[in-house]
Each structure stands twice: as C-alpha cells, then as structure tokens.
Nucleic acid binder design. Structure first.
Lengths: 164, 164
DNA sequence: CGTCTATATGTGCGCGGGGCATAGACAGCA
DNA sequence: TGCTGTCTATGCCCCGCGCACATATAGACG
C-alpha cells in the first residue's frame, strides 16, 4: 500500500497537461493511429479527443491524413515539431523516474523491473487497454515490451481491431 | 522505466475526480487542517481549494469551524457522512492496489515495500511536500509511516509551519 | 492605542477543457 | 438503391480552475 506513493511521487510531477503528453507519446510509437484508438489511449471521449487533436494540429504538432483504405478514418501522424515535443515529454518523464529511483541499487532496479513486468502482464485486459498502459512508455528504451509479448502470446497484434 | 506503468495501472482507475478524493483522505487523517495546507496537499490554488471546500461543504461532507486561536484560519473537519465517503475512497484505492499487486508473492511485496519506503524518504522535500505524498494514504494501515519517521528525524513535526 | 504589514480566507470574472447530443461522410450488406 | 453501423466533426453547455481583488485578523512598532 505504500507502493502507490511512488505513483504520486512521479505522477505529481507530470510533464504537462496529461492528455496532450499521452497523445504525443502514443503517436510517436504508433503513427497512423485513428482518433478512436487515441481516445481510448488517452482516456477521453471521442469529442474530447477531437478537440485535443484540433489543438495539437493548430500548434503544428500533429497532422491528420487520409486513411489509405477507409475513407472515414483519419490517420494521425506527428510532425517533426511534434516529434521533438514528444521526445521532450518522454525525456522529462525519464528524468523524473530516474531521479525518483536513484536511491535504489542496480540489482534492486532489476528486481523491481521484473516485478513490474509480471504485474503488467497480469493486469493487461485487452488490446485497447494496452494503449492506455503504454501511453507514456519510452518506446526507444522499451525494446522487449512485456505488453507486446503478452499480446503476442494471446494471439492479438496491435493494428488490428480484435480485442481479447 | 517500466515501473511507472504500475503508476498508470492504478492511477488510471482513480476512485473519483482527483482533488475531492485527496481532500477527504487528507482531512480524515489530519482534521482541523487549514485551507492553505489543504491546497498544497491537493495541488490546487487557494481559490480552487476554496471552491472545492465549498462543494464538499454543500454536499455535507466537510465543515468549516473557527480556529481556536487564530481568527483568520478556518479549521476543516469531516462530517460523519464525509468520513464514510473518505473510507469508501480509501477502500476502493486499496482494492485497486491489492488487485494490481495480487500476482506478487508476499516476500516480493515485502521487498517492494522496503524499496518504496526508501524511495519515499529520499524524495521527501519538506513538510508541505509530505502532505502531497500522503494525500491518498490509508492512514489506518500506515501505522509506522516512513514519511512521519523521516520528518521526525529531520526535526520537523506536522502541525507546525516550519518547513525543512 | 493607532497604523502598517503579513497572512488567511472568500469572491467576481473569465478561460479552457471536456461531455452530450447531433450532423455529415463513408463502408458493408441485402 | 436503401439501410445500418462506424468514424469523424461540431454546437452547446457545464464545470473546474486560476487571476486579481476585497475582507478580516494577527503581529510589530511608534
């Protein structure tokens, strides 16, 4: 029960206004995401996500493109500026976490990572949930993502619509 | 870096609209808190906290009383109804955490708690910060609070205004 | 005691974010 | 072709919050 205070310690120093940061980080790893999927990822309603995308597009951070096959769907992509912003968000996030866990020894970090990985695998519900979990992941450093592995084991792949 | 996903996993299932829950939990453990301290604890401005207190008071969850010595300060207390609400918030919080960590073995939990305690002690900045950290603590179960211990070692006690 | 400053609380005003309901565009099917 | 489901976008409105200001009190000083 004390453990959730780590949560507060790092989440209280969130990089910026929550949803925007999540959207940027999510699009950095999953370019071409639809608004619907992004909405699930950032935890907003469709309408709210549309406004969020509007704002980010106005700021020149992301852009809407036509979907290749489906005329309804809009594929969202980061602009170069947006990529920079996303990198900054993730960098500040990493900094906070590294700071917070700086007192732990390397072998303790390893233990913690192992526990975290098992917890994540256990708590993963479905494909949409995976987007929420990974919304602020540092994808560059997450080379062997446990979530991807767990999804793979369940026969679900990202980019398809079947939820488990 | 994967560890902050535990954060998402539990914080994404927050009991209710953030600040209100924190205020209730905070007042459950620290009755007679002033609005200023509550503001720091919940991470809002003074004005926002006043509105929050207004709402909670309108709902009959908390009440303002005169301070014993200082005529300016308002002492905030939970009403019986507010105590019930606070208990529910903390209970749901505990449930989420217990669920999330249910895959870990008891000895692993012990290791995790030990690490969390050291991280908390290391990251604690001052008295005001302690209110933010502990805002959603389950005080009934937090018998030997590491934050209190750390504050004590630094010669700071809660209830006074000197920040370390 | 009068005054000045610092502190704490409460309020008018406006802004921005987000949800609900709805409209428009498109895919799939009979 | 028409019907239905899905995806996106918009009108409208509410809520929460911060800024600036007003009010009340404590403490210090002449």
């Amino acid at each position: 029960m004390i453990s959730d205070d780590i949560v507060r310690a790092s989440s209280s120093r969130a990089p910026e206004a929550g949803p925007a940061a999540s959207a940027l980080a999510l699009l950095a790893h999953q370019p071409g995401l639809s608004i619907r999927m992004l909405a699930v990822g950032v935890g907003l309603s469709h309408a709210g996500t549309v406004r969020l995308v509007d704002r980010l597009a106005t700021e020149g951070l992301i852009e809407r493109r036509e979907h290749s096959s489906d005329g309804r769907t809009r594929a969202l992509y980061l602009t170069p500026t947006g990529k920079i912003a996303s990198d900054e968000v993730l960098a500040s996030r990493d900094e906070v976490i590294a700071e917070g866990l700086s007192i732990l020894k390397p072998d303790e970090l390893k233990i913690l990572c192992d526990m975290a990985e098992r917890v994540l695998r256990d708590r993963l519900e479905n494909l949409e949930h995976s987007y929420r979990i990974c919304r602020l992941c540092c994808y560059d450093g997450c080379t062997n993502c446990p979530i991807d592995a767990e999804l793979h084991e369940r026969g679900v792949e990202r980019g398809k619509s079947g939820d488990g």
